[in-house]
């Protein structure tokens, strides 16, 4: 009998700790499928960040390094500079990438560091129990914005892809989501491109995945997807913000 669906080899056969309905599982699978399809598992080194995806080092079958909070791009830089032949990727959440690790994100991007960054934007700190993230929407209620995010005191969310698209070192900055089959397919394509870019030496590639956190949003997985479409996507429009893979980049 023909096998039509199976676990990607790069994805470990272990129970994940993610909550029901969380989109981390889907994105993990997409990353693993891409690693399989490109045949780079033996060459890949992933960098786990701090947050819900901290234990991703147990979920990917390639070599993994666990980085301090926000420093995944710096750790990945170290690995890539030491071993340019490795395919190096980070897997980071919004608190990690856009708050504590903003400097590392921007500078690895502007250096054109030849790494791949998978960025989960679910507008909240999941692991610590639902505090405001740099991407928390205006008026959104979290544990630390109990009256809703007041932009007068807590400021505005950061649109990471738009911001990074201004940097010459960035090869690819693309925002995707995984709320539907169509979008999952598009997300995988983007992730594959981000890895392919690295293999071809094109430089820093980031794929931002607009994601859900049903638990900390206080919704059912179904409602969370609906909320994502109604609230997240208008603020964080999907699309390709930068794609230098065809044009001539400023050298």
């Amino acid at each position: 009998m023909a096998v039509v669906f199976e676990r990607p080899h790069a994805l470990a056969d272990v129970p994940m700790h993610y909550c029901p309905g969380c989109t981390h599982g889907i994105v993990h699978r997409l990353v693993a499928e891409v690693i399989d399809e490109l045949g780079v598992e033996g060459n890949a080194v992933g960098v786990a960040s701090v947050g819900c995806s901290v234990m991703s080092y147990d979920y990917f079958n390639c070599d993994m390094v666990q980085a301090p909070h926000g420093r995944a791009p710096a750790v990945a830089t170290g690995i890539k500079r030491a071993r340019p032949e490795n395919v190096v990727f980070t897997y980071q959440g919004d608190g990690d990438l856009a708050a504590i690790g903003t400097a590392e994100t921007i500078h690895s991007a502007t250096r054109g560091e030849n790494i791949t960054v998978i960025f989960i934007n679910n507008a909240i700190y999941g692991m610590t129990g639902g505090q405001m993230a740099p991407t928390t929407l205006p008026n959104m209620v979290t544990q630390t914005t109990p009256y809703g995010r007041d932009v007068n005191t807590a400021g505005y969310p950061i649109r990471v892809c738009e911001m990074l698209s201004t940097l010459d070192g960035v090869a690819l900055a693309q925002r995707v989501t995984v709320d539907s089959v169509k979008n999952v397919i598009a997300a995988k394509k983007a992730i594959k491109k981000a890895f392919q870019n690295q293999i071809e030496g094109k430089g820093f590639s980031i794929v931002e995945v607009v994601s859900t956190c049903p638990t900390n949003w206080g919704m059912s997985p179904y409602d969370a997807i609906k909320w994502l479409r109604d609230n997240m996507l208008p603020y964080y429009p999907l699309g390709v913000y930068k794609d230098e893979t065809k044009g001539d980049r400023l050298k």
Binding site: V47, R71, A74, V75, A76, I79, A82, A103, I106
Partner: peptide, 19 residues
């Protein structure tokens, strides 16, 4: 690096990769 934090974490990455 962009900071001492980043520099030390780059060392962490490079050393973790075995050099």
């Amino acid at each position: 690096a962009e900071s001492e934090l980043a520099a030390a974490n780059m060392v962490l990455g490079a050393s973790a990769a075995g050099v």
